[in-house]
């Protein structure tokens, strides 16, 4: 039984480690579904991480902290959106610039925050809770439903986003904008508005993802606290083939790999041998697997798995 408990505990941590990835991935999906490749995820996560923490420390109000985190990510996304939508700027370069800016912004604001701890009440209200009924499910209950409400909201958000994308008119319109903005406009959709709204919403998600680290998981401010998780999220968007439900699986799986990296450094006994798997090799796996998925989906050309057709290209709204 203790063996099972250990696995349970490990997977519980995997869900926590996957949470910032899931938020970042959902943010990426929102942006890419309207045709905008945003490489600024890492930057927006950092902006959210530092602002969430800063506001949490200043106000002692968890709701305001979370809101500030989302808004900070959203401001990053707004800069990106203005440049790439209105000014039709290069998406790759703008995204990279946003990551540089966000990293600088977070270190700048965070310079006075190292060593500061989060007020008790903020920590307490974001601590793990037992969800009635659901957390009683054997094995899976504790893993998924004995979590901070913050973690759970990522899960709920992913499901909602899936429904939104696939079952609502707005979702359909949004996908059309990502596939072919001219056709979308011809059928009366305001492509520019759709792009702005979804890219900003994506930024909000990324901000939330970053702040999960500073408000719940760590919970402190450290310089560059995301340590590349924004880039894993960019990979995850592809790994999940732009599908929020697969993103849940992917994020928790990559989260598990990260957790495994810490566990395996001292080696695990397999058939009497002490097998050591270096953490760095496990860290590589998300990227290798993403390339494999990318090659696979381009090879077999199944329609529902493809990248939005307009991804990465600017759209000039011709005079009509």
């Amino acid at each position: 039984m203790s063996w099972l408990n250990a696995v349970e505990l490990f997977l519980q941590t995997a869900v926590q480690m996957g949470t910032p990835l899931l938020f970042g991935t959902l943010g990426g999906i929102l942006s890419e579904k309207v045709g905008h490749l945003n490489l600024g995820v890492e930057g927006m996560m950092l902006m959210g991480a530092v602002m969430g923490f800063q506001v949490g420390v200043l106000t002692g109000n968890p709701a305001l902290a979370v809101l500030a985190a989302g808004l900070a990510g959203m401001i990053g996304a707004l800069i990106y959106a203005v440049i790439t939508i209105t000014f039709m700027g290069n998406q790759v370069v703008t995204g990279l610039a946003l990551t540089i800016f966000g990293t600088g912004f977070s270190s700048f604001i965070g310079a006075g925050l190292s060593g500061v701890s989060l007020p008790e009440n903020v920590q307490a209200s974001l601590a793990a809770v037992n969800i009635p009924l659901l957390s009683k499910i054997p094995f899976f209950g504790p893993i998924f439903f004995q979590q901070s409400l913050y973690s759970l909201s990522a899960l709920v958000l992913a499901v909602l986003l899936y429904v939104y994308l696939n079952k609502t008119r707005y979702g359909l319109n949004m996908r059309m904008v990502g596939e072919n903005p001219s056709a979308a406009e011809a059928s009366g959709i305001n492509a520019t508005l759709y792009k702005y709204v979804h890219i900003l919403a994506g930024g909000f998600c990324c901000g939330l993802g970053g702040a999960f680290l500073t408000l719940v998981f760590v919970p402190r401010w450290q310089d560059n606290i995301t340590a590349g998780q924004g880039w894993i999220a960019v990979a995850l968007v592809i790994f999940a083939t732009w599908n929020p439900l697969k993103a849940i699986f992917g994020a928790y799986f990559f989260g598990m790999l990260r957790g495994l990296g810490f566990k395996l450094q001292s080696g695990i006994p397999i058939f009497g041998h002490n097998v050591v798997i270096p953490a760095q090799i496990l860290d590589m796996l998300p990227y290798i697997m993403t390339i494999a998925v990318l090659v696979f989906i381009t090879m077999n050309k199944k329609k529902e798995n493809q990248a939005p057709a307009w991804l990465g290209s600017p759209y000039f709204r011709e005079e009509r």
Partner: peptide, 25 residues
């Protein structure tokens, strides 16, 4: 804080990226 450099870089880039627009539109 040394991070000011990255902030400054970011701001310069944002302006230049947006300004490209005016070469064509």
């Amino acid at each position: 804080p040394a991070a000011a450099a990255e902030l400054l870089q970011g701001i310069i880039l944002f302006f230049v990226l947006a300004s490209e627009f005016f070469t064509q539109y």
